[in-house]
Every structure is written in structure tokens, then in C-alpha cells.
Nucleic acid binder design. Structure first.
Lengths: 112, 112
DNA sequence: ATCGTCTATCGTCGATTTGCGATAGAATGA
DNA sequence: TCATTCTATCGCAAATCGACGATAGACGAT
């Protein structure tokens, strides 16, 4: 793969000036990726995607972790914007934020 | 959004049985997401994607971090499979692993 | 008003991450 | 051979994460 094509020069690699997306975009992508950078959070996201509406503490039963730990993961996902939580009486229903999910998908798909 | 439709019942949320992808898939996605869950690593990935072939320690100049830190990030990316490194004389050229990148894209795109 | 349920938060612990300088190894060039 | 260059690795310190139990707050039901 374009290796050792110039035995004497220092131009071994492709030195073309690449226009990188601004750093802000990298931060945005990294934050969304980070939200999903844990198996439990991937499972939660998929669970919420699979439901037509939203789910409450049922997530705790689906994910084999302590309730407080699941709540922590939910908080992380909520802070990333990927999910939203609505208080509904004594419980809280979580839903996927389709817009954020689409944004994440587009950022990843844009890696090319 | 389907809130408070049943005032007396416990059936507030959509309790349909959702078939989740196996846990292995969640682990795979989380690992790839984790590789990109840092702005510097996003920048490195984008840099390598932008180049036709590969790059060496030039990455260190592009990323405003110490050489040892960049090397650490490169190691993480390499372990995730997203990039590959080839020793070429005194330097090391890194390339994007298109297959892994595609796998990542598909996993993210499959979130629906 | 009180009880039971559901959820978020606090505090804690160990493990991991992130960043750096210093250093060791490999390879090239003089 | 020797000096130089490039990269990976080794500590090290600070910060953060991940998991848990305990607890507090909110709400509905009795």
C-alpha cells in the first residue's frame, strides 16, 4: 500500500493537505460515540429503539445491573441527548431522541 | 408521546417483547464506539481517511498533543482494528482499515 | 396521613483513562 | 561506528469511569 516507493526521500507518506472538519465536529462525534461506548448503554439504546414508545424501570430488569448503575447509564445517555426521560407519575419513561440518533448516524456515515 | 394514557394501570410503557441483538453485538459496537470516543482519535481517523495512503509521525504535528500521547491513541485505534500500522524503515505508516470502518458504520446505521 | 413503589443521587471503592516526560529500540545516514 | 531520527513503552499523577449499597424525594394507593 504505497510503501517504500521513495527509497531516499522523506516523502514516504501521502502529504496532501487534508481539510479536516473543525474540531467542534470531532468533539461532537466523540461525545455521541462515548455515550454508546459501553455495552449496557448500547443495549439500552437498542431497547428504546425497539419500543414504539418508551420504557421505564423495566430497563433495569432487562439490563443485568443494579438499579443505581442503570440510572447512571441513563443519565449519561440523557446528557448526550440520545435519549429523553419524561416523568409520568411515579415512574419515568425514556424515549429515543430520533433527531440525535440521526445526527450520530450521519456523523459516523460521514467518515469517508 | 404516549404519556399517561392509562391512569390506573401499570401498563404505561410499551411492553412488547423486543428481540434485542445478542450481547456480543453490543460489545462489538461499544468497542468501536469507544475507539472513537475521544476528539483526538476522531481527528486521527478522519486524517487517515482523508489521505489516499497513510501517514506517519506527521499525525503528531496535526494533533496538538505530546508524541507519547498520540502514540497511545494510535495504539487504542490499532487495537480496535480501525487502523493499521506498517513499519516502513525508521517510521510507521498508519492506514485506515476500511473493512472495520464499514463494520462500524453498519453497526451504527443498524440502530433502528 | 401513611405506606409502598419507583427513581435519582450520594458516597465509596477499585479500575481505567489521559496526559506528560524520560527512556529504550530500530533504522537510516554520515 | 556513531549520531540522528522516529516510534513505542515505561512510570507517574490527576482525573474519570463503573459498579454498588444506602438513602432521599416524588407519587399513587390505601
Amino acid at each position: 500500500m504505497a510503501k517504500k516507493q521513495t527509497p531516499q526521500s522523506t516523502q514516504i507518506c501521502d502529504s496532501s493537505a487534508v481539510r479536516l472538519p473543525d474540531d467542534q465536529s470531532a468533539v461532537g462525534l466523540s461525545k455521541l460515540a462515548w455515550a454508546v461506548a459501553h455495552p449496557a448503554r448500547v443495549r439500552i439504546v437498542r431497547l428504546l429503539i425497539g419500543r414504539t414508545s418508551c420504557v421505564c424501570g423495566e430497563i433495569v430488569e432487562e439490563i443485568t445491573l443494579a438499579q443505581s448503575t442503570v440510572s447512571q447509564h441513563l443519565k449519561i445517555l440523557k446528557e448526550s441527548g440520545l435519549i429523553q426521560g419524561e416523568v409520568d407519575g411515579p415512574r419515568v419513561c425514556y424515549c429515543i431522541n430520533r433527531e440525535k440518533l440521526t445526527e450520530f448516524k450521519e456523523l459516523v456515515a460521514g467518515l469517508e
